[in-house]
Design a protein around this nucleic acid. Structure first.
Lengths: 192, 192
DNA sequence: TGTAACATGTAACTAGTTACATGATTAC
DNA sequence: GTAATCATGTAACTAGTTACATGTTACA
């Protein structure tokens, strides 16, 4: 259950309205935990009801901006959650699944997809590198938080992995015929 | 919607009963698309109803083993899905979120978690490397599918990333006081 | 005949997605 | 005054998780 904690973190960094949060979830926090505005408004309601956040007093009506800030209980909950025992979540990626499927039914059409993904990951990597140059310049003058930098470096390393792996995959695919029957059955893959 | 396609792939590789599929989703396919037995039985029902798979004729009763195989429509659906346009799914990782939260409320208790994750990723990496040695030995005698190897190499690279990054994170954390107030507000992180 | 392991399922809940509804403010 | 945009929300659906229920087979 990470969304409430993502919102608590965002609100501690800066008290915001629902729409502002939505915008911030399109970048920043959203780079590793995305959420739609519907999810965010619903969760804000729950958090307020639970006494973890409060709306800055204002005439509450539809269409009217409502700014939230974190209450002591909210901060305490976040502190608790940071130290909580959580197993690493296993990889869950449809693209890897598609490669596995392609090994059985043929790779027709997959090359286009791989190239599209490659371009997208290159773009994302560029974006992260620009952020790093801006917020964490080599001369140490940026003043950015070390933990923030650590998180950003994870993003950079992950995108770098995808770019390299996809480039290899594109090459590999070029050498494999896109027949409808690439491999017969009984050829067990990862651990059969 | 990847689960039905994961099941179709698994059944094409080898016709199986629900429980066998469940076991295979604990390793193999499950390394990049996990599923519980409840999900699997529900999905098998839907796929059968949709005419994509069929149960090998048998007296159908509870507690009685039921083996499924893929029908032509099921294979066609999988072929279609392999070439389908799907955007890369953005990273969604609670651990990165927790680091971000720790930058605001302090890192107390996080080091233990990082070390636990590090150990788990080391174990998983070992497992993948053993599978690689077994199924894809350097002398090319393994006969494993090139696409399967590609998928495995993605798993290896991802685990390698985590091991390296977590090791750096543990070191970084050792140099940061686990105070309840590590950083004041107004210090924007990734893209603020 | 009891019990462990095999095997299939139901029910209830939680999280996330998609489509749509409605009011307020600003710029023309 | 009306169109665009800001802002908050509802409803319905899909996917995934957790807890539990029930029948079958082997075997001590």
């Amino acid at each position: 259950m990470s969304l409430p904690h993502a919102i608590l973190t965002a609100l501690l960094e800066r008290p915001s309205s629902g729409l502002e949060l939505t915008r911030r979830f399109d970048r920043s926090i959203g780079y590793f935990w995305s959420a739609t505005h519907q999810q965010i408004y619903r969760e804000l309601g729950k958090l307020e009801q639970g006494g973890l956040i409060e709306a800055v007093p204002q005439p509450p009506s539809r269409g009217q901006r409502k700014e939230y800030r974190v209450l002591p209980d909210g901060r305490a909950e976040l502190v608790r959650w940071v130290a909580e025992g959580q197993d690493p979540k296993p990889v869950r990626d449809p693209l890897l699944l598609r490669l596995r499927a392609a090994a059985v039914v043929g790779t027709a059409g997959l090359d286009v997809e791989l190239q599209r993904h490659l371009a997208e990951h290159r773009r994302q990597l560029e974006e992260y590198l620009e952020i790093e140059q801006r917020d964490f310049p080599a001369d140490g003058s940026g003043g950015g938080d070390r933990l923030h930098h650590l998180v950003l470096k994870a993003g950079i390393a992950l995108e770098t992995f995808w770019v390299q792996w996809l480039a290899e995959a594109v090459g590999e695919l070029a050498g494999v015929p896109a027949a409808d029957e690439a491999a017969g059955p009984g050829q067990p893959g990862i651990a059969g």
